[in-house]
Design a protein around this nucleic acid. Sequence first.
DNA 1: GCCAACGTTGGC
DNA 2: GCCAACGTTGGC
Length: 155
Amino acid sequence: MNYWLIKTEPGCFSLDLLKKRPDMTEHWDGVRNFQARNFLRDSIKVGDMALFYHSNIAEPAVVGIVDIVRAGYPDFTALDPNGEHFDPKASPANPIWYMVDVRFRAELPKPVSLADIKENPLLADMPLVRRSRLSVQPVSAVEWQVIMSMGRLTA
DNA sequence: GCCAACGTTGGC
DNA sequence: GCCAACGTTGGC
């Protein structure tokens, strides 16, 4: 079982949206970065959990956690010429891009902001802090526990 | 809205 | 295969 952090802009895919449909899964699609793609395709497994991070807003923060309910499979949004995530190089035989399905698990009673994360020396090695724009990144067990505790979420 | 970081593209 | 130009991300 591994831990991850996935970023979304709440304008297009917010935790609230997931929360409203606790019994449904959602495709987490549109990732167009090779390093992130590799994690989605090769590393993320069913049963893994991910921190749900809202970016590109006034106070970017980890706002909740989601379960990975389906491991990497081809991101069909790359094949839709009218879609926002269309990639002319992708084809059914060579999908290039991958996505996973996630399901709402919990909301953090206290969102953990990027500022909070930067202040905590235990979290200094997170790619998030190292100014990476990576939209899917691994999280260590220790980092996970620290963020759970900062977010006042008890298992 | 600005701009720094950084990944990708394409000419050579 | 180098590297300049360009596009995107995302914090501020």
